[in-house]
Amino acid sequence: MGQRRAIVFHGTGAHPDVVWLPWLRRRLAERGYDVEAPHYPDLNVEPIETFLPKVLANHTFDRDTVLVGHSGGAALLLAVLEHIDVTVDQAFLVAGYSTQPGADAEPVLQDVYDWAAIRGSVRDIVFINSVDDPYGCDAAQGRAMFDRLGGTLVVRDEGHFGDVGQPFETFELLDRLIG
């Protein structure tokens, strides 16, 4: 194996220094990962058709890459995985979703997905969703992706895994799951 790389994507309206993201970056760096944590203020603002090419151009993906996305960043990973031409090692979609979770439009979502292409671009995919997610990024969303892609579905009772009013400074489970 080559140099292990982790790319950690924040959620909508957020940045790389919220909730458990800085903690996870430190933990992965201590384990020898080269960690990227890009700031994408236009995530879920700019339409995915024009936003995705910028994301793909900014990163290198290979068999030693681990992808982590929270909320809108997890939804972004579906498009990333569909459009890369390599198989990454692992992808973790935390509070992810593939259909509109609420009343507001979600520009990060594609109208349709090539589920076979997504599955073919990742060795191991894990969905971590909560039964009580206040934004609709809930266990039903996780199940819908799991039913199409397989992998592992983890259902918790932990809200949005960090948000305004929900401190979530560490995420031990996620750290343990990353290979």
Rank of each mutant, 00 (worst) to 15 (best):
T50M: 05
S121E: 10
P47C: 08
G96H: 00
L21A: 03
G120F: 03
D34M: 13
L21P: 02
P101M: 05
G2P: 04
S71Q: 11
Y33D: 01
R31H: 06
R4G: 12
P47Y: 07
G179C: 05
L56T: 08
V88S: 10
G159E: 00
P53W: 02
V19D: 15
R25H: 07
H59E: 09
V35M: 05
G11R: 06
D89R: 15
T170I: 07
A74H: 06
D124I: 12
Q3M: 15
A140I: 05
V80K: 06
R119L: 11
F9S: 05
L28D: 02
S71L: 11
G120H: 07
V19P: 09
L21I: 12
G2R: 09
F61E: 01
E49C: 09
R31Q: 10
E36G: 06
A74R: 06
L174W: 00
F168K: 00
V154F: 00
I125C: 08
R27K: 14
D175V: 08
V155F: 01
G102M: 03
C137Y: 00
L153K: 02
G162N: 02
L28M: 08
F92N: 11
V45A: 08
V94C: 04
N129F: 06
R27A: 13
G32L: 02
P16Q: 13
T50W: 05
D175P: 00
H70I: 08
N44K: 01
R176Q: 11
D175K: 05
G136H: 02
D85F: 09
